[in-house]
Design a binder for these strands. Structure first.
Lengths: 255, 255
DNA sequence: CTTGACGTTGACGCCGCGTCAACTTCTACC
DNA sequence: GGTAGAAGTTGACGCGGCGTCAACGTCAAG
């Protein structure tokens, strides 16, 4: 019951089963020039020999390593360990980068879930950790107008390049705006401060939509809890308290 | 110099710069119903207001978390922390799986590179660690014919389901074939054993193409090095030596 | 009125195949 | 010989998330 052809070649279905892939995959590899059959019959049917099956094995091993078919083609065509190493080294760089990326994402998402379950919000650092801060920075001044931003620009200029970049994210700018409001003496119910608190509410709402009551509670916690208060008051003393007072007004008016 | 329209809405270019995405992305989000502009002018131009920009911020935060646009749509439309948590939990499962997958791939590739640089080959366990062994197993008996496989099937049957699956991979089958050859007393230069060594040579060549000399050296090492010898001799005593002798013949004839 | 900078819609491309669809060919049985 | 069924063939679309090009409309500045 040997169904192998006398010349030792096998048809596409058998080749596919031998290697554990679909016949469609073999046709695909043929069409992109990665693996041609040993010969094609007058009827157009593909037939694979030992050499092709070995090449296929090689291809599949590399595929398991996550290499692209392009890369795989280069490796198997070269059949040179030095070339293989070079390609694999490239590939390894990408793999570790992906691994790290997913690790950071998973950690961030896990923390996000955690924060949501506690019914509270995240600190800026927690939310933005692992993100590319700069992507949220462009023309931030346009978002709130030049007014408040200009006020704090002098302090910003003194921070140096590194310091600026670390601080250039949305929430931190809200805090800066709060600090500016304090320095010029705006009241909690002033239009300027109310605009800031609207931004803050929107930011919090990205993951959790507080009611009037919970929003008041949250901002009160910013004052009571030392870890949160530091985040605000390190920019300007009284910032947390100003936010709490402004939030109370905002909650009554808008929520 | 305020270029913002009097109604507070901005055009697509400004919205894109504010959020740090391309205008093409905004059009895409509109076309898939993820984010519609506040209003569209008679000329077809899109205009975005505060609400849309906030929704966009929300979308982008979730995008940074690696969620699909479908998932993102579900989350932002629900605007319910419970729904958000459920989706994020699903998402986290996928993220950790991807992280682990890339970690395994990276480790395997790193070991592969290491082995290649040592100019030696990998052990079966090293190569196949992290792979799905079963994908290389299908109809392995067809590859070498029923002859040798049947010989060892009795032992196989006694291994139990778990044991079988662990051992069902290409290299291990070569070793099994070697063991069978020993039991029936085939000589190193017999056609049967030579076919086995051809398989072994092809397997080694998947990552490293030995010359006649290095192939002899490699198989000699299988005998000399205790770690390698165990891999062969645990199947049948003398398997490593048989492979070495057969490889010498093969190298002289074919390499 | 021209020029140039922006906007619009529509379409293709990427990657690795899965999955139809429509057709031909081989094998088996009557 | 006919006929059914299994398996082959090529060709095409689809998937995700946009980038990018084509072809064209619209607006402000000179």
């Amino acid at each position: 019951m040997d169904t192998t052809a006398p010349d030792g070649t096998v048809d596409i279905a058998r080749a596919a089963r031998l290697a554990g892939v679909s016949s469609r995959t073999l046709r695909h590899y043929d069409s992109i020039g990665l693996l041609a059959p040993a010969w094609t019959g007058d009827d157009g049917r593909r037939h694979y020999g030992q050499a092709e099956l070995l090449r296929l094995q090689h291809i599949l091993v590399l595929r398991e390593l996550g290499a692209s078919l392009d890369t795989i083609g280069a490796i198997v065509d070269a059949d040179d360990p030095a070339v293989t190493i070079a390609h694999l080294r490239d590939h390894l760089t990408g793999l570790t980068a992906e691994r790290d990326r997913y690790a950071r994402l998973a950690a961030t998402v896990a923390r996000t879930i955690d924060s949501l379950e506690k019914g509270t919000t995240m600190t800026t650092e927690q939310i933005l950790d692992g993100f590319e801060h700069r992507r949220y920075e462009p023309e931030a001044r346009e978002r709130w107008g030049d007014h408040a931003v200009d006020q704090s620009n002098e302090r910003w200029a003194g921070l140096g390049k590194e310091g600026q970049q670390r601080h250039l994210d949305a929430h931190r700018e809200i805090v800066e705006a709060l600090g500016a409001a304090i320095r010029v003496g705006f009241a909690p119910d002033s239009a300027e401060v109310q605009e800031i608190v609207a931004q803050h509410y929107a930011w919090v709402s990205l993951f959790w939509t507080p009611t009037a009551e919970t929003y008041r509670g949250l901002t009160q916690m910013y004052v009571d809890d030392e870890r949160f208060r530091r985040n605000y008051d390190e920019v300007a003393p009284g910032a947390a308290a100003l936010l709490r007072d402004a939030a109370a007004v905002y909650a009554e008016r808008e929520l």
